[in-house]
Design a protein around this nucleic acid. Structure first.
Lengths: 227, 227
DNA sequence: GTCTATAATAGGATAGAC
DNA sequence: GTCTATCCTATTATAGAC
């Protein structure tokens, strides 16, 4: 009985977290009231405080879930590859990051869309520190790939990281669903990794608007997407 | 005298809009109070209402600026190119879109970061309609490029559009400045266009982690970035 | 744990003097 | 046009009964 009570309690807390995740992701932290969250899980606002100390801790708990999963996934994919080009590691990291973001889409958006609030709120400094650690892993991988020539040398790694972060957001954010449909069908992580690493153009085409289109190799099979 | 009064009035309204743009872009619409905006331009909250009817109209006016400029820029760059591959038009559109977003960064972020509020607010339906028109121009260009083979055929145009929109956001959003530094140095529009169209890898490299790296053409000169 | 009731504050907007 | 004063609502959070 005591166990069942405890179990029910965990479920209730989980429902609160889930409702908050949904609303924070959709309307943002400031666009969501405690009343909204309570209503979404069939409780009165005051009852929420039996499960969560306050609104900002609710946000922190959600973001921590995502960051924990991301750290674990990056630890695996950023491990030194067996001698191949570092760009392959970058590709694995893109897949891993997008995979985690798709498994925790609401939590990812909580972090991403409420970032300035998180950054400005001293009690959420832990989140900032952990995100910084993730960023450092990325920077190291991109710089190494730039150094060994497996990423193009004419664009700085920081610009690439900017694109990686933003594009990951783009895969997850439902705001873009009306453009592209739900992203979690097919293999969005693989699609994004292929687009970012190899670009929109078929291989063998001209590399800029100022150059005539080439003809060789256009439409070649792309094993990276077929796997 | 009457003219000077009118002129001062325009300036005051402009200061209000500018302060609001700054705060909406940084903290979001719901994260910014009318009091915040008033304080930022040295006014009392009630004085704002001499310049703007209400808070949501303030948002609408800002977003309209951006959308107007974007429509003009896309109209030019999406015009039919002279027989070259349609991907070149796409590249021009990326440059144009990023260029406008960099000229109106705060207004762009007002639209992007407050999108769900805009979408949910009936009085802002005009903004939604105009953004839809922009989206339609993009879809047409991407589909045409996919059809004539100048964009890779194994990724649907909608996924590419998703990446374009998200990456554009990434260039503008100051949130990423701590990763990559300010984006408005150098030629961010050209850099993004090159990254998206041609990818992170040097041309001639392997196209996926599952394939051994090639050796031909690595490090070739890229006129698209040197221009 | 959930409720009702209630603080205590923050927010959007208006009235009317100057 | 800007101000002070004010209204009304929404919001976060707590107190205490059940």
């Amino acid at each position: 009985m005591a166990q069942q009570t405890a179990h029910a309690s965990v479920d209730a807390r989980e429902r609160v977290l889930s409702a908050a995740a949904e609303l924070f992701a959709e309307r943002g932290y400031h666009g969501t009231s405690v009343r909204d969250i309570a209503a979404a899980c069939g409780l009165k606002p005051s009852s929420l405080y039996s499960h969560v100390p306050d609104k900002s801790t609710l946000l922190a708990d959600l973001v921590m879930r995502y960051l924990g999963a991301l750290e674990a996934a990056l630890e695996a994919s950023s491990a030194d590859p067996g001698g191949g080009p570092s760009a392959n590691r970058v590709e694995e990291m893109v897949r891993a990051s997008v995979g985690v973001a798709l498994r925790y889409p609401r939590e990812f958006l909580c972090l991403s869309n409420s970032w300035t609030y998180i950054r400005r709120t001293p009690s959420l400094a832990t989140l900032v520190a952990r995100r910084d650690a993730v960023r450092a892993v990325w920077q190291r991988a991109l710089r190494e790939a730039a150094a060994d020539g497996s990423l193009r040398a004419d664009v700085d790694p920081e610009s690439m990281l900017r694109v990686v972060f933003a594009a990951t957001h783009g895969v997850v954010d439902r705001r873009y669903d009306e453009i592209a449909g739900p992203a979690d069908e097919g293999d969005p992580a693989g699609v994004l990794a292929a687009l970012l690493l190899d670009g929109f153009r078929p291989r063998g085409r001209a590399v800029s608007a100022t150059v005539r289109a080439g003809t060789a190799d256009a439409g070649a099979v792309r094993p990276g997407l077929a796997e």
